[in-house]
Design a protein around this nucleic acid. Structure first.
Length: 380
DNA sequence: ATTCAGCCTTATGA
DNA sequence: ATCATAAGGCTGA
């Protein structure tokens, strides 16, 4: 089996961080053979292939294609991965820039956390599934979508991989009832509605991805956001996730409950009436497609964007990973340990401690399983 | 214009 | 055992 290498400066990419931080939901971790795999669209002529990634060291990733060693496919995959992992962007450089204006980046930032460049249609569907939901279940739902309505690409180590279904696939094969049976809950209606809207708007000659990406030629960035907001099940947070991870709009900062908390707690953010009025005026110039908006969240979003600059969305990824890695990815016993140690720390009042926490493997059944332990910093 | 209950389902903790 | 709550929100009243 052929493996080629991607080289980058130390710490630019850490697969365990990038692929498991809640932006991509279809990577399958094989703990026995130590690789990540997923189905990936290489290009129009080659179509979907099973792609295998493994971290060799801090500056090397090895990639492979299941049952395909051809130069043509490897060239295409290399191009794909360079875009998918956004290797044109230097994280180290960004970290030093953020450190200069924001002390929260000094000394305690997560390394190797990058924003991915994903397929917009897949990103849209994935994040419609993410509302009021957890990563384990979102993963399961994304795999269900592919398994039920996608095309089988192959079977590697006992796991079948499928293409991500197009809006056309979903419109013709899926139903709200079926999706509900698969465990989508109220999001079933959103997925069907989004696929229908997409199918009806899109020229038949274009793929979903081609069509969505073509918006860049005609629409401004705020207009693109509004365009996503027109889909059912898509509010500001979901739209921003798609803009950031599916459209390379690197300055967009999605605001969820965690970022809201961080804004108030770590950045002393509070919305002023002045800024609220100014923002509302600006939104009036847009063809608004949303029913309502929470102006406080919108202002926090802009505060972060102006503080962190053109790659503010990437900064959010780092800050977010630091925040949730305190709890997410940990098993019950580990969290008991964390709580116990935290109590001890409160008594002795020292600054930081390090706790070993188990990571989580997401199989294609969506069931979280344990994998090799990793160390995380736990800030008290 | 803004706020807020309700929504599907699963896992965890009391 | 059973129940409440939260999980990277959106919708409609």
């Amino acid at each position: 089996m052929r493996f080629d290498r991607l080289l980058f400066p130390k710490g630019e990419v850490i697969l365990a961080h990038v692929l498991q931080c809640g932006q991509a939901f279809r990577w399958v971790w094989n703990s026995n053979k130590n690789y990540y795999a997923t189905s990936m669209l290489l290009n129009d002529s080659l179509g979907y292939k099973i792609v295998i990634l493994r971290q060799k060291d801090e500056s090397t990733i090895e990639y492979s294609i299941y049952k395909d060693d051809s130069d043509k496919s490897f060239d295409a995959l290399r191009t794909c991965l360079q875009h998918y992992l956004r290797l044109d962007v230097s994280l180290e450089k960004l970290l030093s820039e953020w450190s200069a204006v924001d002390k929260n980046f000094v000394n305690k930032c997560h390394r190797g956390v990058r924003v991915l460049g994903q397929e917009p249609w897949e990103t849209l569907c994935s994040f419609i599934c993410s509302s009021n939901n957890n990563i384990s279940r979102i993963t399961k739902m994304c795999h269900s979508l592919c398994g039920e309505y996608g095309k089988e690409i192959g079977n590697l180590d006992g796991i079948s991989y499928y293409s991500f279904p197009s809006s056309n696939d979903i419109v013709h094969k899926a139903s709200e009832e079926h999706l509900r049976e698969l465990g989508f809950g109220y999001r079933a209606r959103y997925i069907i509605g989004a696929a229908k809207l997409m199918h009806q708007d899109k020229p038949v000659s274009m793929s979903d991805t081609e069509y969505i990406k073509s918006w860049h030629k005609k629409l401004s960035k705020p207009e693109i956001r509004e365009r996503f907001l027109a889909f059912p099940g898509v509010g500001p947070k979901v739209a921003d996730c798609v803009c950031l991870m599916g459209m390379q709009m690197d300055d967009v900062v999605p605001i969820d409950v965690h970022m809201q908390r961080i804004a108030e707690r770590d950045y002393r953010f509070n919305a002023t009436a002045n800024k609220a009025e100014e923002l509302k005026e600006r939104y009036k110039a847009l063809p608004l497609t949303r029913k309502s908006m929470n102006i406080k969240l919108e202002l926090a979003r802009e505060m972060f964007a102006s503080k962190w600059g053109p790659y503010a969305g990437w900064a959010q990824g780092v800050i977010f990973a630091q925040e949730i890695n305190k709890t997410v990815g940990a098993t019950t016993e580990d969290m008991h340990l964390v709580k116990r140690v935290k109590k001890e720390e409160e008594k002795s009042s020292s600054a930081t401690l390090e706790v070993k926490v188990e990571g989580i493997e997401y199989s294609n059944t969506g069931r979280p399983m344990r994998w090799a332990s990793k160390k995380v910093n736990y800030n008290v």
